[in-house]
Design a protein around this nucleic acid. Structure first.
Length: 429
RNA sequence: GGAGACGUGGCCGAGCCAGGUUGAAGGCGCUUCCCUGCUAAGGAAGUAACGUCGUAAGGCGUUCGUGGGUUCAAAUCCCACCGUCUCCGCCA
């Protein structure tokens, strides 16, 4: 959520920033207008309350000194003020609801450094590593869904039978590889990030706090009977972990990581990318998350990006880093870098991480503050998040990239400590 | 799922039954100062957030789990919800 004071103070700058995303900024003008009405009513309410507090106190004193008649007389004078107060108070509630609804649908202002442009075609390629299209042998040009079936490590058909399309089931060595990737993703960040295993089903208000509701209700799974939502990412519980709290500056940056299942209905993408693991309703992910001061945010952004990229690099996967154009950054982000892995079998780039700096947009919404040392008062923290390791697509990249001529799959060196002696997934017998 | 107890400031904990000088006693913690050879002990003062008006000093308002209600007046009475604890039941 954007800062109402900033909007009040400099609406044109806010509109200009929002417009860089290609979003309609007219709601900012509405907010300014509604906000000034709110304050008019607030002054009125405060004045009425001040008066009635004063009178109440007087009545109390009269009662205590036994002057009941005078008290009764004074009480009569308060008649009517209540309705008036109620009228103003209701107006405030109503106006603030309108403002909130408008603001919840306004995305964060992109960083001035974020590249111009409205679509993914405008994303800026920051670097490409290990990618040479001519270097792939024929045995690598087999999509992972075919490899998975051939080796019995990925069973899409049976997963679909029990859960419907866009669900997958890993088996045998495939399941082992998945488990190794999760441990690998967590362990390499253990030096600085606290490992958390949060709930994956949360209350409605939790989803609202992180901005996934009400706007994206169609993208999430909802258990009606208990009014619980399946989280689309660990970002949801990790943000809520400290929602409403005031953190000590000394504990910032607060680095957290979590492995969870993530659940997405993918409502808008029926029929797209449905083969294999390209897009699934349920997947495992190691999420990196940090709360920090505005001063620390830039470095933290680079740190999370670096950690996510190193994990991919050390796995030996061809990848590239994109600096997302304003129009392609998701709602809460001010600046986002995507990491994409090249999958030679599927013959395409797969997004495996999206590292976002959300400035104080999420913190404002979830009310997460800190007390700057030596200063009075509190300030909103900055929040940052990025996938440390999104399992299915990395799994796919490994299986395709490391496929040998005999159909076996060599395991990347860095995973060996997690594989109990398994150095390859054997080829077809 | 059944029965009962409970939710107060950074923390502990009074107040609630009998509504009113209670933004809330007392203690701990923290900050500043005094005293003291050092430390400890002791003394004094201070110690919330948010909103709004104001150039400012400051004023006013809101907040005792959350949201409603009763009342001139609610931490205190009523209702709903959320959560915690104890016992029983069930269960990995």
């Amino acid at each position: 959520m954007l800062d109402i004071k900033l909007i009040r103070h400099d609406p044109e700058a806010v509109k200009a920033a929002v417009a860089r995303r290609g979003e309609d900024a007219s709601s900012i003008d509405q907010v300014v207008e509604l906000d000034s009405q709110v304050r008019t009513h607030m002054v009125a309410v405060d004045e009425i309350r001040e008066e009635s507090n004063r009178v109440s106190k007087e009545i109390g004193e009269l009662f205590r000194s036994g002057e009941r008649d005078k008290a009764e007389e004074l009480r009569k004078t308060t008649e009517g003020s209540k309705e008036s107060e109620r009228g103003h108070a209701d107006a405030i509630t109503d106006l603030q609801d309108q403002i909130r609804t408008l603001l919840l649908n306004v995305s964060n202002m992109p960083s001035p450094e974020a590249p111009d442009g409205l679509t993914e075609d405008d994303n800026v390629e920051v670097r490409v590593e290990g990618f040479d299209p001519s270097s792939y042998a024929d045995h690598q040009k087999v999509p992972h869904w075919e490899i998975g079936e051939e080796l019995g490590i990925l069973d899409v058909d049976r997963a679909v039978r029990m859960s419907g399309s866009m669900f997958a089931m890993y088996r045998g060595h495939g399941a082992h590889l998945l488990r190794a990737l999760i441990s690998y993703g967590l362990d390499r960040n253990r030096d600085a990030f606290e490992e958390v295993r949060p709930p994956t089903m949360v209350k409605t208000e939790t989803m609202i706090g992180t901005g996934h509701l009400p706007k994206f209700a169609d993208d999430a799974y909802h258990l009606e009977r208990d009014d619980l939502w399946a989280i689309p990412t660990a970002e949801v519980p990790l943000t809520s972990m400290v929602a409403g709290e005031i953190l000590d500056e000394a504990e910032l940056p607060l680095r957290l990581m979590a492995h969870t299942s993530c659940y997405r209905r993918e409502a808008g993408s029926a029929g797209r990318d449905t083969r294999g693991l390209l897009r699934v309703h349920e997947f495992d992910k190691v999420e990196l998350y940090a709360f920090c001061t505005p001063e620390q945010a830039q470095d933290m952004h680079m740190e999370i990006l670096g950690r996510a990229e190193n994990a991919i690099r050390d796995l030996g996967l061809a990848h590239r880093v994109l600096d997302l154009a304003c129009g392609d950054i998701s709602g809460a982000g001010a600046r986002t870098y995507d990491i994409e892995v090249f999958a030679p079998g599927a013959d395409r780039w797969l997004e495996v991480s999206s590292v976002s700096w959300c400035t104080d947009y999420q913190a404002r919404r979830a009310n997460i503050r800190y007390r700057p040392e030596g200063q009075k008062g509190t300030q909103f923290v900055h929040s940052l998040n990025g996938s440390g390791l999104a399992v299915p697509r990395v799994w796919a990249g490994i299986v395709e990239t490391y496929r040998q001529a005999d159909g076996s799959i060599k395991m990347p060196e860095v995973l060996l400590p997690y594989l109990n002696g398994m150095t390859e997934i054997p080829g077809p017998s």
